[in-house]
Design a protein around this nucleic acid. Structure first.
Lengths: 111, 111
DNA sequence: TCAATATATTCCAATTTTGGAATATGTCAA
DNA sequence: TTGACATATTCCAAAATTGGAATATATTGA
């Protein structure tokens, strides 16, 4: 009975700046590993490892094309993050509501 | 000359599920540390440490109120993440565009 | 089949992260 | 002041993460 390492989740996936860099590189379409390596000041094995993490966290998918593996963003996962952050929208709006209220109040009026 | 540990950024801040749990607990308003401890199956020192990381990553702010430190979400940072994920919106929409096109095509029609 | 190309995996050392226990610091109330 | 309460910090061991080098695997073309 082995303790399995759980797959990294969405949030772990984007925690690393290099992984976000990869996602940003994939924003314009699918890319092979070497194309990413060329753009990234990281050796190929390191890039492949980050890609594995991105894949395990659901953030990218792969497609085989000859000897190449073409990676692409799996935006559905990013959408989940989008939805999560969106629940805080009320809070960043709240701030402006308070400001509005203040500006409309006697103390807030331009003297 | 010491190597300073850089502050964790926004994305590292939300990478940990416990820290996201804290943010979610703060969604309804500011809370003292013990209130968070009571809700969280983590000892007080551990909660304080996660709060420090959240603070350093800009995700929360603190206010002193007597012996308490009241933490609150600093939604502006989450908004940045919201904006970042939003740049991928084109991709998740793309998928639906393709689906729409498929459904509208002869192959996509219900047989 | 063999060599070249594209990518993944293994092994390793360095670094980082984490929680808990113990302890320190700060604040209030009597 | 003193004690109680709220929170932060330090120290420590365990676990996780990371990149590089070396190596393995898969695919294509000659």
């Amino acid at each position: 009975m082995v303790a399995l390492r759980p797959h990294p989740d969405l949030y772990v996936g984007v925690a690393d700046p290099r992984r976000r860099a990869i996602l940003d590189l994939l924003l314009t379409g699918e890319r092979g590993v070497n194309a990413l390596v060329d753009a990234m000041d990281l050796r190929q094995p390191a890039v492949s490892k980050q890609l594995r993490i991105l894949k395990e966290s659901g953030l990218v998918s792969v497609r085989k094309a000859g000897r190449q593996r073409l990676y692409r963003v799996n935006a559905g996962e990013l959408r989940k993050m989008y939805e999560w952050t969106k629940t805080y929208e009320q809070i960043w709006n709240e701030r402006f509501d308070k400001l509005d209220a203040y500006l409309a109040s006697p103390e807030g009026e331009t003297k």
